[in-house]
Write a protein that binds this DNA or RNA. Structure first.
Length: 1103
RNA sequence: AGUCUCGUAGCUCAGCUGGUUAGAGCGCUACACUGAUAAUGUAGAGGUCGGCGGUUCAAGUCCGCCCGAGACUACCA
């Protein structure tokens, strides 16, 4: 027996199937039943259980899950090891918020030990919630043996990787310019800089300084800055290679001295008004306004300036090497300023980079301890070497002073004839989110991975990766690789993987530790050399690891570099660290590297995708993954980003509980490509539930209802396909085409294509055409057997077998996307027939295509049938002729013999669908067809070129006679613009447009005419059908069983007597009536309404 | 600011290597159907394919610029 249900309840199905999976270890079986040699390797990007799961996680995990399930069904072993990302700033911030502390308090109010313990505890806070959503959404991942990034084994592998990089010379210490908050005394991450409210508009004093060119009397470069306090640190100027500069003879507005200044031509009008050869110095004393100049002496391109030297602007500190040169910088623009950029390598990231490229040194001073530092200390004050301004804060840190230091610098420059111009300047400037004070870009010591060394290799390897969508890989990721910078690994934090590098005080020797065992040995060495009693810490985190002192070859103590590493390195290490490679699981790792498939959000392009790729390239000279799907964002129904503050966050649990996991999953996959942003609309989920799952459910209920009555168990031999009715062959052909397409789509990581094709098959073809047209095949013979399921003729058997096959196959096709409903459907079917031995659809194989079942000609003629039927319905509608009223015939113009052959094979089907007695074909010779001609633009366009327009006009004017002549001759000579062209029939599209005197409808090349003449015979039959319909309604209203026999008494009437006389047997057969009696009166009957305003009494009773 | 993605009906999306009346589903309106019925059919309303310019006989489709949404990177003299 097939199980029958009262209604579709997807959430209930979720629960039942979930229970079944768990009780029978279906997930485990689905993995283990496949051979390990045939692995499909998937890497799970670790989520952080520190935040709650959102609806976007359901999206990302649906993508992951469905391809894993697909490859499982394709016979591959797909192990999915889960993982947890446990380090990182968000966790630290969370802890600090809860404890009400800041970073400065760590070490004083709370020990590092306690702090880290708290982090460790917080990190799994929402693990239960994550486990729960994982389970409820049907995401199959092994959460029993996850990798966890804070575990020692994980850390040890990361250390090993770092040591590999170190040994290849890819790890170095340097300094870079990073956002730094002097008020808080800490560097800031870009994450912290992106917090709301950090950028504020502030007014600063901007200055255009005059840099005197070496060896000239009075020639200057003009460079603009909004941070005059960086001028003492200037060591270079940058110009744009292709920018045109002008040399301008002008007076200095403050000193009245004559000089030649150089600035970008485009910026001339910003600082100067007009040329005045007779200009006097008094005329330029005005404040901030542009001033006139004497003359332009000449023009010069940026690249001609390259390498020129100038005199230091403010000589407090001298550089170590040659400096004060003009460089080419690609970032130089003429949008504002002078087109010449002042370079202070210690206080700007661009500055630092371009200076390093040219070997220009930064300006540094040594403090008491001999450490080098910039001219501004970590509190944000000038160092003592900057004598005039020593000890003064460079930005507003709450100090009280007469004037900001910028103003005093400007005054000093003014006095020395080094200032060209100065004004207040409003711009947005980042502030520390914790102290609200301005951030400085400040040189900080950091450890770097020399990613630039592997840039080309990464680029090459990337080309072998299949990205979905391709553009993300080629453009977004490719561009990123092209402009790659070295990877800053250092983080001055507490909760993360410690950098395993120990150094002597003088930094002359250092060691990079690659394993716990190595650490032990080094500790032993140090204990001996230094007389210590240390042991390797049980926990590799801070603070324990910080206490470890190692010893250098020459006996010096070595201390650990206090930095932690970027958490992105944690996750990028996951292919190796999840197996604790190379310390354990060597074979496992080798089998599982690289991944066949990974998937995460696009935001991971430069995150996880990059770190996986970088580490794999640098350490293993390999890709880390071969296929990657980067999915888009999940937005709310209005296209806004979901955020807690907007209150538009969709609760994934609620959505799944209300609509069922499958409806949510299916909606997400079918609605838009995963890589496009998804506007998540719960109404859309409801629609999927109703339309797709509802239809599929209805189809199954229909099947189960009659299959149970007929006790169809699919045990009888399959009726050979070729002997089944045309429509069976057709749906099986479509089904096989669908299997083929779906498989290709899944294999190509195109879930949306697959889902849409399946959906269209189920709703349009299977349900709305096949089942609708075949309904009676399922119940009609059963009636003839007096309600007994005694037997099954070949036609009926074929119908059951066909529908069964379709449903079973569909259950497998949808299994990757909607695992619950698929399993429900599969089990309902298979547990009744027991034809397959699998307990679950997820243990079954993906259906294979029977190529011989695919018949494209058949698919085409059924398409004709559907479209012709649709045209006839439209005509009936226009003439107000109900479908139950049989009509004599339809007529089809035939211009193409193969069309006729095709339609003839489905003519019966069309006739019964649209209720006509015959189909006639009107061929050309009938002479009644009115034709329509169009040029074939594709063939003609290329040949005719410019004459195409004329030709199209001429062809449009063809008369019926012209068309006839053309068809007879087969060629046509077209003259246009003095050119002559020989055209053949290929160059035209001729269709039948009209049949004069008949009711006609068109759909593209298809034309249908309907004969609407009614004979008394036809009217009687129409009436009979209406009577059947009314009786059926009464049966249904009276809740009779579909197999109940009845007796009918009908009140006589002129309009229906003939119908009963001629079609009485038909009416009885259709309605399972043992008798149909015409009576003058029907006492106790009910009134029914028949066409033509005929109201009569009828009595239907069960016998 | 740069790079990338996207912009087609009220909504969600198709639209193949450019080819001549731009499609579907949902929603809306009307009618029909009723042995799948929270389904179905037919018809109607609804589009200057974000804007401007270019290439071409022909542009939703190719190119340039602009506008808008989003992501990432950077935050600047």
């Amino acid at each position: 027996m097939y199980k029958e249900y009262k209604g579709l309840n997807l959430p209930q199905i979720d629960q039942d199937i979930l229970k079944f999976w768990e009780e029978h270890n279906i997930f485990q079986q689905s993995v283990e039943q496949r051979p390990a040699e045939n692995s499909f390797v998937f890497y799970e990007g670790p989520p952080s259980a520190n935040g709650k799961p959102g609806i976007h996680h359901v999206m990302a995990r649906t993508v992951k899950d469905l391809f894993c399930r697909f490859h499982s069904m394709k016979g591959q072993r797909v192990e999915r090891k889960g993982g947890w990302d446990t380090h990182g700033l968000p966790i630290e911030l969370n802890v600090e918020k809860e404890l009400g502390i800041t970073k400065e308090d760590i070490g004083s109010k709370i020990s590092v030990d306690e702090y880290n313990a708290k982090c460790r505890e917080t990190v799994m806070r929402y693990k239960d919630m994550w486990d729960n959503i994982t389970r409820k959404m049907g995401y199959w991942v092994d959460l029993d043996n996850p990798y966890i990034t804070f575990e020692n084994n994980y850390i040890e592998t990361v250390w090993w990787l770092l040591q590999q990089l170190y040994q290849k010379g890819l790890l170095y210490k340097g300094f870079t310019i990073q956002p730094f908050s002097p008020a808080a005394g800490t560097g800031l991450s870009s994450h912290e800089l992106n917090m709301p409210g950090t950028y504020k508009d502030i007014k600063d004093i901007s200055a255009v300084a005059q840099f005197k060119i070496k060896g000239t009397a009075d020639e200057y470069f003009l460079a603009w800055t909004t941070t005059p306090w960086t001028l003492p640190s200037n060591t270079a100027l940058a110009v744009g290679k292709d920018i045109t500069y002008v040399k301008v003879r002008a007076y200095n507005r403050y000193t009245g001295q004559l000089g030649t200044v150089i600035l970008a031509k485009d910026r001339l009008s910003h600082y100067f008004t007009e040329a005045k050869p007779e200009l006097q110095p008094e005329e330029v004393k005005a404040g901030n306004k542009p001033i006139p100049y004497l003359e332009v002496l000449g023009e010069v391109k940026g690249h001609e300036l390259e390498g020129m030297e100038y005199e230091q602007l403010m000589g407090y500190v001298q550089p170590e090497k040659t400096a004060f040169k003009v460089l080419i910088g690609d970032f130089v623009s003429t949008d504002d300023g002078t087109g010449i950029v002042h370079i202070a390598p210690t206080f700007g990231a661009d500055d630092f980079r371009v200076a390093a490229k040219y070997g220009i040194p930064p300006l540094l001073v040594k403090d008491e301890e001999g450490n080098s530092g910039p001219l501004v200390d970590r509190q944000g004050r000038f160092v003592k070497e900057v004598t005039d301004f020593a000890g003064r804060y460079v930005k507003d840190y709450g100090q009280e002073e007469e004037r900001p230091v910028d103003a005093d610098i400007v005054i000093k420059l003014k006095e020395e004839n080094k200032l060209f111009h100065s004004e207040k300047y409003l711009h947005s400037y980042p502030h520390c989110w914790r102290t609200d004070r301005p951030v400085l870009y400040y040189p900080l010591d950091s450890w770097f991975v020399k990613a630039t060394a592997a840039k080309e290799r990464m680029y090459e390897l990337n080309k072998t990766i299949n990205w979905k969508p391709a553009a993300t890989g080629e453009n977004r990721f490719g561009k990123w690789l092209e402009n790659l910078q070295d990877w800053n690994l250092s983080r001055s934090r507490y909760w993360g993987i410690p950098l395993p590098i120990w150094r002597t005080e003088d930094a002359k020797s250092e060691k990079c530790i690659g394993s716990v065992e190595e650490l032990r040995q080094e500790i032993e060495k140090a204990n001996q050399a230094l007389g210590l009693q240390q042991q390797a810490p049980k926990d590799l985190h801070r603070p324990y690891i910080d206490e470890v002192v190692l010893v250098s070859e020459d006996g010096q103590p070595m201390k650990r570099e206090t930095d932690l590493i970027d958490v992105w390195f944690d996750s990028g290490s996951m292919p190796y660290a999840q197996w604790h490679y190379p310390f354990e699981n060597k074979e496992v790792f080798e089998r599982k590297f690289p991944a066949n498939f990974i998937a995460e959000g696009v935001d991971q392009t430069r995150g996880w995708f990059y770190t996986l790729h970088a580490i794999a390239t640098m350490v293993f000279d390999s890709v880390a993954f071969k296929n990657v799907v980067s999915n888009g964002l999940v937005l709310d129904a209005d296209g806004n980003k979901m955020s807690k503050s907007k209150g538009n966050v969709i609760d994934p649990f609620g959505a799944i509980e209300q609509y069922g996991a499958d409806a949510v999953r299916w909606y997400m996959m079918a609605n838009a490509n995963p890589w496009d942003n998804l506007k998540f609309d719960l109404n859309g989920v409801g629609e999927v539930q109703r339309k797709f799952f509802g239809t599929l459910y209805n189809t199954y209920s229909f099947f189960s209802l009659y299959a149970n009555i007929d006790q169809f168990d699919n045990a009888a031999p399959q009726v050979p396909l070729k002997t089944r009715p045309e429509i069976d062959q057709w749906i099986i052909s479509l089904l096989n085409s669908l299997v083929k397409d779906t498989e290709a789509d899944y294999a190509n990581y195109e879930p949306t294509q697959a889902a849409r094709k399946i959906q269209s098959f189920v709703t349009d073809n299977l349900s709305n055409w096949y089942v609708r047209l075949c309904r009676r095949r399922f119940w009609k013979p059963a009636q003839q057997q007096n309600g007994q399921a005694a037997g099954m003729d070949a036609d009926k058997l074929a119908a059951y077998q066909t529908l069964y096959e379709c449903l079973l196959t569909v259950s497998k096709l949808i299994a990757p996307v909607s695992p619950f409903f698929a399993d429900w459907l599969y089990q309902n079917l298979n547990s009744a027939t027991k034809l397959e031995s699998h307990a679950s659809v997820h243990l079954a194989d993906f259906p294979s295509v029977s190529g011989s079942a695919i018949d494209k000609a058949l698919e085409q003629r059924m398409d004709y049938a559907q479209r012709i039927s649709s045209l006839v319905f439209a005509l009936r509608k226009k003439e107000d002729l109900r479908v139950r009223q049989p009509l004599q015939k339809i007529m089809l113009p035939v211009l193409d013999p193969s069309f006729r052959a095709q339609v003839e094979q489905v003519s019966e089907l069309i006739a019964s669908e649209v209720n006509v007695k015959a189909i006639e074909y009107l061929d050309d010779t009938s002479g009644v067809l009115k034709k329509r001609i169009k040029p074939n633009f594709k063939t003609l366009g290329r040949r005719l070129g410019k004459d195409m327009k004329l030709a199209a006009g001429a062809i449009a004017k063809f008369s019926q006679e012209d068309i006839a002549n053309l068809e007879k001759a087969g060629t046509y000579t077209l003259n246009a613009n003095g050119n002559s062209y020989e055209l053949t029939l290929e160059d035209f599209e001729i269709t039948a447009e009209d049949i004069p005197g008949l009711l006609v409808a068109n759909d593209g090349p298809l034309t249908v005419a309907l004969d609407v003449t009614l004979t008394p015979e036809l009217e009687a039959e129409g009436m009979a059908r209406d009577i059947v319909n009314r009786i059926q309604n009464i049966r249904k209203d009276s809740n009779f069983e579909v197999t109940d026999r009845i007796a009918v008494q009908l009140q006589g009437h002129d309009a229906l007597n003939s119908a009963v006389r001629h079609f009485g047997d038909y009416i009885k057969a259709e309605t399972l009536a043992n008798s149909l009696d015409l009576r003058p009166e029907v006492p106790g009957g009910q009134e029914i309404e028949l066409p033509g305003g005929v109201n009569v009494q009828i009595l239907v009773s069960r016998v």
